[in-house]
Nucleic acid binder design. Structure first.
Lengths: 212, 212
DNA sequence: ATAAAATTCACCCGTTTAGGCGATTGATTT
DNA sequence: AAATCAATCGCCTAAACGGGTGAATTTTAT
């Protein structure tokens, strides 16, 4: 089954070369190419793409706005952004709008085809420099709440889960089919690993650090 | 100038093949390869790498902990994670710890070399499937569910706050300059309003509903 | 094969909680 | 003026919890 691709790109030479590239590859079909996103919903309806190649800078409706519009109506369509500059704000906005991938325009044609394929399969291809910016944004957000990695065993994680539910030792023993002393034993170890010494502290830490 | 690479990987065959791969490429040098991260700081000091290839699952100190340690002492060193499974939590933890890239172990050798090069240049190479998970985590942070309104008095809110901190009744009494029986009284009322009957349940509900 | 874990269980002891059934004071509302 | 409610305090009891020590078994890793 070939992958149907629609192109939104205001630069005509680039748009045409993309459409030729896609149409010339057996696994792909170019079902539409458009110079702007003014009639984006109509265009999508007529071309029924699996993947959209979207230029970020277009006159009229920007690529980012177009992503929001498409994702609202057709959440299953994957969108691959293309841009000349790896501008932080635009990357961030695109991600929030629901774009799946982010390529720089200097990306060689063969990689573009790869990326479209990956996108169709649910991946999110992005050039390493773009990915680095995404990670930076991520790390900034978690900088306030630095999360230490805590390695709990399977059983411990299970017990902790019950603790968060509010279960007593007795109840945990019942659900896990083990004795209450074993539950205590696990909980002692959990407390050590979490550096706490009561149920409530453990619960608080577990939730905040998303250990459950 | 060649890129100096250190390897942390508990699987010996894989470790050796990686080191051969790197040593055999003119632009790279393998300055160290280690089976675990127990002496990670010493190992880094002796091998002085530009880029570290880090297995995420290792006995003793996990790869994620190792990243934290390295990044703390040597923030300029770039770290490329390697793992068999694209597990959400581990990816998230790695990113927060400061890893620069994230490769699945099935990545072909040539791509590994590309990725090391990208990493050294400040990029963050990752396989599309990993990138997709990162984006999902990003997009998730925007969606929040509305909650039932719970009307706590000022004092009750204060006491609940202490509960979430992990304080005992006695400690709360001390902080609030009230008797322990008064604390109990407030907590009884809080339990009624939250429809719970234990500290841990109250803490869980308080955090999840952002009552604190 | 051997060391290192994870998992299981037991007993003791003192502290903490939870639930019950009270009470008094002050502020706010009706 | 009466009612309501938040905030304060007390006592009793049974259950739950936390910490300590110790040990057998199984799984996993080297």
């Amino acid at each position: 089954m070939e992958i149907k691709v629609a192109i939104f790109e205001d630069n005509k030479p680039l748009r045409d070369s993309l459409s030729v590239l896609i149409a010339g590859s057996p696994a792909f079909a170019c079902t539409g190419s458009f110079a702007n996103a003014r009639k984006v919903l109509k265009d999508i309806e007529s071309s029924e793409p699996d993947v959209v190649l979207m230029d970020i800078d277009m006159p009229g409706i920007s690529g980012i706005e177009a992503v929001q519009i498409i994702k609202q109506k057709f959440p299953h369509i994957q969108i691959l952004m293309q841009t000349v500059f790896d501008d932080d704000d635009k990357i961030f906005a695109s991600i929030c709008a629901g774009a799946s991938g982010y390529l720089l325009k200097k990306t060689p044609p063969s990689k573009i085809l790869d990326a479209i394929k990956e996108t169709a399969e649910g991946g999110a291809p992005m050039t390493p420099s773009v990915a680095a910016k995404v990670l930076q944004m991520f790390q900034k957000q978690s900088a306030q709440a630095p999360v230490e990695f805590i390695d709990l065993s399977a059983r411990e994680r299970e017990v902790l889960k019950q603790l968060v539910t509010g279960d007593s030792y007795k109840m945990i023993a019942a659900v896990c089919y083990i004795s209450i002393d074993t539950v205590k034993s696990h909980i002692k170890n959990i407390y050590q690993k979490l550096h706490v010494n009561s149920k409530s502290e453990a619960v608080a830490k577990a939730i905040r650090q998303k250990l459950v």
